[in-house]
C-alpha cells in the first residue's frame, strides 16, 4: 500500500510554509504528525498533490505561558503535551484528555494542532478545546485571524482553515482557581477510536457551581456543548441527585446519527451516562490553586 505521488517540501521557517501554502493553495496539505493524514493517503482516500511537512520548522512546537494563557504551537506532540508541566498546571483538562488520544507510538508523532485541524467528530481534542474555550490562531499570506471553537469547527473533517492557511497557534485560558475537570470516553479500548466522550471543566465557589463547560464528542459533525446540562447546574450546589438529573438534559443537546459503531439512540444514552460520570469524576479530583 502506497500513497499516490506527491511533491514534498520540508520548510524550516513559518514564512516558507506560508509561501508554499499560498503558492499551491487547494493542492497542498500541511503534514503535521501524519497519524490521520498518512493512513488516508495510504488508502488513497486523500491524494494531495503537494505535502508541506511542518516537522522541520522548529518555531512550531513551543509551549508557553503568556500572562495566564497557555499558548501551544501546533506541532506540540500529544505525548509531549501530556507530560508538559506547564500544560498540567495551567490546563489540567488538556493533559487529562491527551491520555486518551491513542496508543503511545501514535501520540509520540501525533500533534495537538494536527488533531484539531483534522476535526474528526470522534477525536478527543476538539471536545477538550470546546470545553476549554480555546482560541485558534490561523495564519496565511494575509496575516493572522483568530477564531473561537464555534467558528473553527465547521463540520465533519472540516474547519475554517482556508487553502493557503494553517493552524499557527492554540491559546487556552488558564484554569481559574478552584477548577476541577475530567475527560472520559467510551470505546472498544481506551487507546482505540471512541464512540463518544465528554470533557468537563467546572469552577466552584465552595460547593456551588460558578462556571461550567461541558463538551461531547461522537454525537455530531463536530464537538457539541451540553448547554442544557450546564444551565441546570450553573449557580447551584452540586449534589449527586442534581448531577444525575442535569445529565439527563444532555439528551436534548445532541442529535447524533446512527453508524457502524453505534445507533443514534445509543449515542444519546451514552452522552447522558458519560456527562454524569465526567462531572462526578471531576468533582472527585483535585481543585486548581
Amino acid at each position: 500500500m502506497k500513497p499516490a505521488k506527491f511533491t514534498y517540501y520540508a520548510p524550516e521557517t513559518v514564512a516558507e510554509i506560508i509561501a508554499l501554502l499560498g503558492r499551491y493553495g487547494d493542492d497542498a496539505r500541511p503534514l503535521a504528525g501524519g497519524q490521520s493524514l498518512v493512513p488516508l493517503m495510504n488508502m488513497r482516500v486523500a491524494r494531495p498533490a503537494v505535502l508541506v511537512d511542518l516537522n522541520r520548522c522548529k518555531a512550531l512546537d513551543a509551549v508557553s505561558d503568556d500572562d495566564g494563557t497557555l499558548v501551544l504551537g501546533p506541532m506540540v506532540r500529544q505525548s509531549g503535551g501530556e507530560r508538559s508541566e506547564l500544560v498540567r498546571r495551567l490546563c489540567p483538562l488538556l493533559a487529562q484528555t491527551l491520555r486518551f488520544t491513542g496508543p503511545r507510538a501514535v501520540r509520540n508523532r501525533a500533534t495537538i494542532g494536527g488533531s484539531l485541524a483534522h476535526a474528526d467528530p470522534v477525536a478527543e481534542l476538539p471536545g477538550a478545546a470546546l470545553a476549554l474555550d480555546a482560541t485558534f490562531v490561523i495564519e496565511g499570506a494575509n496575516g493572522r485571524r483568530t477564531l473561537k471553537p464555534d467558528a473553527f469547527f465547521v463540520g465533519q473533517l472540516t474547519t475554517a482553515i482556508e487553502p493557503g492557511e494553517f493552524l499557527r497557534e492554540i491559546r487556552i485560558p488558564k484554569a481559574a482557581a478552584n477548577t476541577v475537570s475530567a475527560f472520559i470516553e467510551s470505546g472498544a479500548r481506551q487507546e482505540g477510536v471512541a464512540i463518544g466522550g465528554v470533557a468537563a471543566q467546572i469552577t466552584l465557589a465552595g460547593e456551588v457551581c460558578q462556571d461550567i463547560r461541558l463538551a461531547a464528542i461522537g454525537v455530531g459533525s463536530g464537538p457539541v456543548r451540553l448547554t442544557a446540562t450546564e444551565r441546570t447546574l450553573l449557580g447551584r450546589k452540586l449534589s449527586e441527585a442534581l448531577i444525575t438529573e442535569a445529565a439527563k438534559a444532555a439528551e436534548d443537546d445532541v442529535d447524533p446519527t446512527t453508524d457502524l459503531h453505534a445507533t443514534a439512540h445509543y449515542r444519546k444514552r451514552l452522552t447522558v451516562a458519560l456527562a454524569e460520570r465526567a462531572i462526578k469524576q471531576a468533582l472527585a479530583g483535585p481543585r486548581t490553586n
Binding site: Y8, G34, Q35, N42, S79, A105, N108, R109
Partner: peptide, 11 residues
C-alpha cells in the same frame, strides 16, 4: 520514542 513506520515517510 516508538513510532509507527507504516504512517511515517522515510524522508
Amino acid at each position: 520514542e516508538t513510532v509507527r513506520t507504516c504512517i511515517t515517510f522515510a524522508v
